[in-house]
Design a protein around this nucleic acid. Structure first.
Lengths: 226, 226
DNA sequence: AGATTTTATGTTTAAAGAGACAAAAACACA
DNA sequence: TGTGTTTTTGTCTCTTTAAACATAAAATCT
């Protein structure tokens, strides 16, 4: 079926997750070429000879969607010989959580956010890749407050709780959630309040370094009581 | 420096860890070809066009060391353009914990166990790969009793504790360790005792399914109290 | 028999974590 | 001013976890 002498091709694919319209959404591009022309896919492309995998992931994401300067983390490498119908293409998948407002998605019919609960038909094994990224995100969320990557610079605790609920897929007790999250290292209580326009205004919070795009922002740990 | 048109090569490399001589050891092969001829390396080789990455990892391990039929887990993909001095080779690293007695390492000067605390000069970025596998192993150990993969079919709790201590790099309280480990789901107390030949014999334990080579044997969870 | 070594075993204390639960304050709007 | 909606806050209970710690039993060796 395959010539054993032919060399493989290697791509990177990126799962970009955000919160939008009260749902967890993933950034997809419509394929313009065969195979799977017209189907949706996560942004990806070939790795160049002189760039490392992290850089390649960042570059293809920028090229396809104009999304730049975010922290991408390696997810898993998918190498089933049949995952690509034409060639032998191994892909190294990356993922990131971002604030939808932070990125300028190319205004284009071919680049759109889709709810992870209502995915269209996807090219290749991209559905599997997205599912795996969700699993990883949930595992992360149990360890540290990665949700802040999805929130605005200033956010209310209700917004943060909603982010957790959307990712974990279950509702949480308001008082217990706040009790826990308030202990998080780096969380800062502001003297500002949401101007919601209606109802009681909510206090705003922020994170230290929320603007840093820190390479390891993922790994904020809970404070150890001294 | 690189021709952008040339295709990448992709390999798999495997970190095989075991307990031997009261230390955590990794299986290395001496390279017979350039680059790094004569240096030690973790077993690896090229991925064939018709095999998936998991199969490729298993095959190269078998070819180089005669080690067969163990559960390899994908670790990370290393793709720095300079990691290979001659070509652009991206490698997908795998790792496994095994019982040294379970495998027939080819009796050969070129295939040897080395303590992870006293590694010789290693080819490529293999030192980094091994370090990363140790980090991952420790993270695993905090979640579930992966150490049983390193022990004989029947083992004493003292042996198991020693395994934990070697992996975590710290000593543990005997009573507290036993208290915790006895609650592990799948641990079976046998009516057999070690014939150590000296001192008081120790009770032997085993795990359900310890012989299964289960693909997900890693993920035994602690029993939930009902 | 006595010395030595290894196995085996339980309690207490403190700290942290999970889960359940209700009432008052701030604002918008009519 | 009154109604409605959202934010805000604390306590109690129960469970789990961590850490510290000492003595008796089973075997070997001399």
């Amino acid at each position: 079926m395959f010539k054993e002498t032919k060399t493989h091709e290697i791509t990177v694919d990126t799962v970009i997750l955000t919160l939008k319209n009260d749902s967890l959404q993933v950034l997809l591009v419509k394929r313009e070429n065969e195979p799977f022309k017209g189907k949706w896919a996560i942004p990806g492309g070939y790795v160049r000879m002189s760039e490392n995998l992290d850089d390649a992931a960042m570059r293809v994401l920028k090229e396809k969607t104009n999304v730049d300067n975010i922290y991408l983390e390696q997810l898993y490498t998918f190498g089933d010989p049949l995952r690509h119908p034409v060639a032998r293409v191994i892909t190294c998948a990356y993922f990131a959580l971002i604030r939808a407002e932070d990125v300028n998605v190319i205004s284009d019919e071919g680049v759109q956010w889709h709810s992870v609960n209502e995915l269209p038909a996807l090219a290749f094994d991209h559905k599997e890749i997205i599912q795996y990224s969700l699993k990883r995100t949930r595992e992360r969320l149990e360890l540290c407050p990665v949700a802040y990557q999805l929130l605005n610079e200033k956010f209310t605790l209700t917004e943060m709780q909603r982010a957790y609920e959307l990712i974990m897929g279950k509702s949480l007790d308001k008082r217990n959630f706040r009790k826990k999250v308030i202990q998080t290292e780096g969380l800062i209580e502001l003297n500002e309040f949401s101007k919601s326009g209606s109802k009681r205004p909510a206090r705003l919070y922020t994170f230290e370094n929320i603007r840093l795009n820190s390479k390891r922002a993922h790994f904020i740990k809970k404070e150890k009581k001294s």
